[in-house]
Computed example of a mutant assay.
Amino acid sequence: MTNQNLPAEGWNEKRVLLALDLGSQTGWAVRHPDGNITSGTLAFKNNRFEGGGMRYLRFRQWLDELNALVGGVGAVAVEEVRRHAGVDAAHVYGGFLAVVTSWCEARGIPYQGVPVGTIKKHATGKGNASKAQVIHAMKRLGFKPEDDNQADALALLHWAIAQEVGL
């Protein structure tokens, strides 16, 4: 799932990098051009009075707001999940993935999916690390993740920075 609009070398020092752990509770992390990192989580659950697509509209709106706030996202890394706990989780993930990839394509922003095991191995040394181990690894780096979604986004961001994989 890699967009082929790859930027020239040197993007890493100047462009904003966004890392996403997609789901109803989405984890996000941003590396700003000055090197500072911000992160958090956002809930995109539907309430009982909304149609099924409202969570995706709110997610797209958040992407637009974040893009404006940071002066333009330069690249996006997404946790690439291959197995889900259930059908509903798979559908929700697929919806968020479709939104973020189409959002990137419409703006010419390069994006890349990164397998969960790759992220965990980079963060902890173990590709099958537990959620608690990833949280602990991010705390060792000085972060205070609220939950595993934020920790996963931070771990993904650190992988993307370290790899400089043409994001």
Score class of each variant (00 low, 15 high):
140 R>Y: 04
50 E>V: 06
59 F>P: 11
14 K>Q: 13
20 L>E: 01
83 R>V: 15
83 R>P: 05
17 L>Q: 06
164 E>Q: 15
42 L>Q: 13
159 W>Q: 10
22 L>K: 06
92 V>E: 13
109 I>V: 14
38 T>M: 09
133 Q>P: 05
40 G>L: 04
24 S>Q: 14
138 M>L: 13
6 L>W: 04
131 K>W: 06
157 L>C: 05
47 N>F: 11
121 K>V: 02
21 D>Q: 10
154 L>C: 11
102 S>G: 01
163 Q>D: 15
21 D>I: 07
106 A>E: 13
102 S>P: 00
158 H>W: 14
149 N>T: 03
101 T>H: 05
145 P>A: 11
152 D>G: 13
48 R>E: 15
15 R>Y: 00
45 K>T: 13
6 L>Q: 14
148 D>N: 11
6 L>A: 15
108 G>L: 03
133 Q>R: 03
133 Q>K: 08
96 F>M: 15
92 V>N: 12
144 K>W: 00
75 A>H: 01
55 R>T: 10
113 G>C: 07
69 L>F: 09
150 Q>C: 09
134 V>N: 08
35 G>H: 10
113 G>D: 03
67 N>L: 02
97 L>A: 15
37 I>Y: 05
152 D>K: 03
85 A>H: 12
93 Y>S: 09
30 V>K: 01
22 L>Y: 04
75 A>Q: 09
16 V>H: 03
55 R>Y: 10
107 R>W: 04
31 R>Y: 03
137 A>I: 01
139 K>D: 01
159 W>M: 11
89 A>W: 04
97 L>P: 01
127 G>Q: 02
157 L>S: 01
11 W>I: 00
6 L>C: 08
99 V>C: 00
145 P>V: 03
158 H>L: 03
72 G>F: 04
50 E>F: 08
123 A>E: 00
131 K>T: 01
25 Q>T: 12
13 E>P: 03
49 F>M: 14
127 G>K: 00
156 L>T: 07
135 I>M: 15
32 H>C: 07
68 A>W: 08
98 A>P: 09
16 V>L: 02
110 P>S: 02
130 S>N: 03
146 E>S: 13
18 L>T: 08
89 A>T: 12
93 Y>E: 08
134 V>F: 02
56 Y>I: 07
151 A>H: 04
47 N>E: 14
89 A>P: 06
17 L>K: 07
100 V>Y: 00
31 R>G: 00
104 C>D: 03
55 R>M: 11
2 T>F: 08
56 Y>E: 10
65 E>L: 06
151 A>P: 06
98 A>I: 03
